[in-house]
Amino acid sequence: MNTPAARPQRSHGSGPRPPSLGGNLWTLLALLVLLGLSAGSALLELGVFNTVANLGIAVAKALLVLTIFMRLKTDNALLRIVASAGFAWLAVMIALALADVLTRAPLLAPW
């Protein structure tokens, strides 16, 4: 089962170095502040910028969770590629679907 390794074993503890306690807690604080900003800005009359602000803040929050809590910042670069691929395909799906809906003139029934 546990045969002697042909190559020298890498022996550091599994995973990237754990982020500091302060780093995690500051991230949580930033996330909660952003949540407050999101709720507050939604109550202001900003027109289309309500949606822009809400989605922008959501993206900022997601990036904080991805980079700090999920450790994409310090972990293997391959993981960053796979994670980016997931979001990239999602962007393609939404962009193509919207392109169809926003640019097509409705055809009237011929009868």
């Binding site: 999101s38 939604a42 202001l44 009359e45 900003l46 803040i57």
Partner: peptide, 10 residues
């Protein structure tokens, strides 16, 4: 959260 709860709140 923003897509469900925060639309048209102003």
């Amino acid at each position: 959260y923003p897509l469900i709860y925060l639309v048209g709140r102003a």
